[in-house]
């Protein structure tokens, strides 16, 4: 096993797994607590439009994805507040529009679109040094932002009206946070892929939430569970030679089911004692 670590791609993958677990652990807890899972799915799929345009114009597809995801995130946040369009319909429109733009531009791009599958299904083993550096940067921003504003984030998310009555700029906070959601999605596209990314933002949180009901504890245990799942998934995918993104998600779901079973047994056992 140790010879694995002499491969660059493998050490890169491990660093990527660590950064993914941290960024998704923090941002996912925010998403799950505030019930933004559908919005996050929308942002993720809209970013495919940017990937298609990146291919067409010969840019790094992730730059296109970043632009699309941030604009869609801010757009959804704005639309749900200021216009009369129903929020879930607005998300569905963006979701499918982004996918459509991506498909059209990839079709128009002459020749073959390399790594397209990577963006759709993820491939943690193809993460480059540049990807890691960007991922590190975004993860640090997320960590610092949450450390600085932790209680304001918590209180504004729990009861925005109360925060507004205290003259807190709730809209600005929400825009900042949804931008961080978009950036976190972009840096994790290569790891899990557009189709699977939402699970990295929700399964660790759902698992942690089985045992903990406190925002900061859910963050902490989501990171630990996410890291365990992605490292196990990574090794598993390497040894059986199956796609890493899907294997990681599979492992995370397995962990969730085991913890769920454990909790049921624990509750039964405790009630038998009484």
């Amino acid at each position: 096993m140790f010879e694995l670590f002499s491969y660059h791609f493998f050490t890169n993958a491990i660093f990527a797994a660590v950064l993914t677990s941290i960024s998704c652990g923090i941002i996912g807890t925010y998403i799950v607590s505030k019930r933004l899972v559908f919005i996050s799915g929308g942002i993720t799929h809209t970013s495919f439009g940017g990937i298609g345009m990146g291919y067409f114009f010969g840019l790094n597809p992730l730059i296109g994805a970043a632009i699309f995801s941030i604009l869609s995130a801010l757009g959804i946040e704005f639309m749900s507040k200021k216009t009369e369009v129903r929020e879930d319909s607005a998300i569905a429109i963006m979701w499918s529009f982004g996918m459509a733009v991506g498909i059209i531009f990839i079709f128009l791009t002459p020749g073959y679109a390399p790594n397209l599958i990577t963006y759709l299904f993820g491939s943690i083993l193809t993460v480059t040094k540049l990807d890691l550096m960007i991922s590190f940067g975004v993860t640090m921003i997320v960590i610092i932002f949450f450390l600085m504003f932790y209680k304001t984030i918590l209180f504004v998310s729990f009861d925005p009206d109360f925060a507004k009555a205290r003259q807190i700029n709730v809209d600005l906070m929400n825009y900042a946070l949804i931008t961080l959601v978009a950036l976190t999605i972009v840096i994790n596209i290569k790891v899990a892929g557009i189709i699977l990314i939402i699970s990295l933002l929700t399964i660790p949180q759902a698992s942690a939430n089985l045992f903990y009901k406190d925002f900061n504890k859910i963050i902490l245990y989501s990171i630990i569970i996410g890291l365990t799942g992605s490292l196990m998934g990574l090794l598993l995918s390497y040894y059986i030679n199956i796609p890493s993104g899907a294997t990681i998600i599979f492992t995370l779901v397995l962990i969730f089911l085991i913890l769920r079973l454990f909790r049921t047994i624990k509750i039964r056992y405790l009630s038998d004692l009484n």
Partner: peptide, 21 residues
């Protein structure tokens, strides 16, 4: 269902613009 403790809810009463951080 929001994951927040009673202690934190009570403390959130101190929320004010001078105390963002």
């Amino acid at each position: 269902k929001f994951p927040i403790s009673v202690n934190d809810v009570v403390l959130s009463g101190f929320l004010s613009t001078e105390k963002y951080i």
